[in-house]
Amino acid sequence: MSFLGFGRPQPTSAEKIAAVENELKVVAEMHSRMVKICTMKCVDKTYREGELTKGEGVCLDRCAAKFFEAHQSISEQLQKETQARGGAGGFMG
């Protein structure tokens, strides 16, 4: 979210901490979304085995890679579209 930190001259301690905290929160949320979706896509829900099968493991690896790719391309597209539509106002309702 570094594009939200447009340069106020001297951020206070609280602001700097909040910025780092926020950045880490964004990453943590992305991580938990990925775990949820890729588990759903790749892991068999009958739990007949306690270990990931080879197929499930490979599926998780690929799902993670695709999730990052999709995440990035969605983020770029959203920025482009939002600019084209003139600010986040319209999109956020």
Partner: peptide, 20 residues
């Protein structure tokens, strides 16, 4: 089933944590 699910979920968490 619960016990295997816990194990598998932990492995999933670890594996996806590494990839992430």
């Amino acid at each position: 089933c619960i016990s295997r699910c816990v194990l598998k979920s932990m492995s999933t968490q670890t594996r996806l944590g590494e990839r992430f």
